Amino acid sequence: MLPARAVQDWLLETENPSVRYFTLKCLLGRDQTDGELQAARRAIMASPAVQVILDQQHPDGYWLKPAQYYTGKYRSTVWQLLILAELGADPADARIQKACDFILTQAQHRESGGFAEKGGRNGGNAGLVLPCLTGNMAWVLLRFGLAADPRVQAAVDWITTYQRFDDGIATAPQGWPYDRFEMCWGRHSCHMGVVKAMKALAEIAPQARAAAVAETLARAAEFMLVHHIHKRSHDLARKSKPGWLRFGFPLMYQTDALEILNLLLDLG
Rank of each mutant, 00 (worst) to 15 (best):
L2M: 06
A4P: 00
D9T: 09
W10A: 15
E13L: 07
T14D: 09
E15A: 14
P17N: 07
R20H: 06
F22N: 06
F22S: 14
F22P: 04
T23D: 03
L24T: 15
L27A: 15
L27W: 11
D34I: 11
G35S: 10
A39L: 11
R41Q: 13
A46G: 08
S47C: 15
P48Y: 12
Q51W: 02
Q51V: 14
Q51T: 15
Q57I: 09
P59R: 10
P59Y: 12
G61V: 08
L64H: 11
K65C: 08
Q68R: 09
Y70T: 10
G72N: 03
G72W: 00
V78C: 09
V78H: 12
W79Q: 07
L81Y: 08
L82A: 02
L82C: 01
I83C: 06
E86C: 03
A92Y: 01
A92P: 00
Q97W: 03
Q97L: 09
K98G: 06
C100E: 03
F102M: 11
F102A: 09
L104N: 03
Q108N: 10
G113N: 04
G114R: 01
E117R: 13
E117M: 12
K118D: 01
G119Q: 12
G119S: 15
G127I: 10
G127K: 11
P131I: 04
G135S: 05
A138G: 11
W139V: 07
L142D: 05
L142E: 07
R143V: 13
G145I: 04
A148Y: 04
R151A: 03
A154N: 06
D157C: 00
I159K: 10
T160I: 13
R164G: 00
R164S: 00
F165G: 10
D167R: 15
I169C: 07
G175M: 09
P177G: 13
P177C: 14
D179E: 15
R180F: 14
F181K: 03
E182M: 04
C184T: 04
W185A: 06
G186T: 14
C190A: 15
C190N: 14
M198A: 08
A205P: 05
A205D: 14
P206T: 12
A208S: 15
A208W: 01
R209Q: 07
R209I: 01
A210N: 08
A212L: 06
V213R: 02
A214G: 09
A218G: 07
A218S: 13
A221Y: 03
F223A: 15
V226W: 04
H227I: 03
H228S: 05
K231Y: 03
H234G: 05
K239T: 07
S240M: 09
P242D: 02
G243W: 04
F247W: 12
F249V: 06
F249S: 08
T255L: 07
D256I: 07
E259A: 12
I260R: 01
D266V: 01
D266H: 04
L267E: 12
